[in-house]
Amino acid sequence: MARVHLSGELRQLAEGATVIEVDATSVVQLIDRLEDRFPDMKGRLREGIAVAIDGEVMANADYLPLGPESEVHFLPAISGG
């Protein structure tokens, strides 16, 4: 089960949970399952979002595999200079 850490605005959409365990093998599948569980999240994880998997922040992570112990964070996507 991947462990999804939620902070701030995303936690509000997840009924206050800070860590959620989700059975998913890819980021896109994880997002689908989060949206099923928390309908308020719909669309919020698909635009302008970067994903950190096991400490590494990535911009286009949708189809990256998740390990059974993966730590996942959703962050606003940012651009460098």
Binding site: H5, A52, D54, G55, E56, V57, E71, H73, L75
Partner: peptide, 16 residues
């Protein structure tokens, strides 16, 4: 107070 390997960063993910 410096962050180092293994510390959960203030933006979330754990530092390598």
């Amino acid at each position: 107070n410096a962050a180092e390997e293994g510390v959960a960063s203030t933006y979330g993910p754990t530092f390598k």
